[in-house]
Design a protein around this nucleic acid. Structure first.
Length: 110
DNA sequence: TTGCTGACCGACG
DNA sequence: CCGTCGGCCAGCA
């Protein structure tokens, strides 16, 4: 098996399951994976997402406040915001508008 | 192998 | 209200 199922792989899988025009949070994903509290690992997984063979919509993953904390990893520009706006998600001051409505909880949806 | 790091979260003062 | 600290665990030098 060239691709063993690891914590990272699960994170990527869940992130790819996020529907178009929806967003999720690190904590929600971490909790869904059964490792609540290790939300940092989710963020770290996103950092390594560039090394992942499959595309990972990391721009749909933000912190609990709906703030684009990881936008600096998208080229250090407003690329992350543009990607979200391209999906119909409004972003103001690096924060997602109506985050509660757009929030996609894997524990509820899956 | 050991130790540091990391795009977070919640608690505490 | 705001700053600080600890915890969670896998990857990398």
């Amino acid at each position: 098996m060239p691709q063993p199922i690891t914590f990272f792989s699960k994170v990527y899988e869940v992130v790819r399951l996020i529907p178009y025009g929806r967003v999720s949070s690190y904590g929600a994903i971490a909790t869904y994976l059964g490792t609540a509290g290790s939300s940092r690992m989710v963020g770290w997984a996103m950092n390594k997402a560039h090394s992942h063979p499959k595309p990972v919509p990391a721009h749909r993953v933000v912190n609990r406040n709906g703030m684009l904390t990881g936008k600096h990893h998208f080229g250090g520009t407003n690329l992350m915001q543009e990607l979200l706006e391209n999906e119909g998600i409004k972003v103001e001051n690096e924060t997602i508008v109506d985050f509660e409505k757009l929030f996609w909880d894997p524990m509820k949806e899956l």
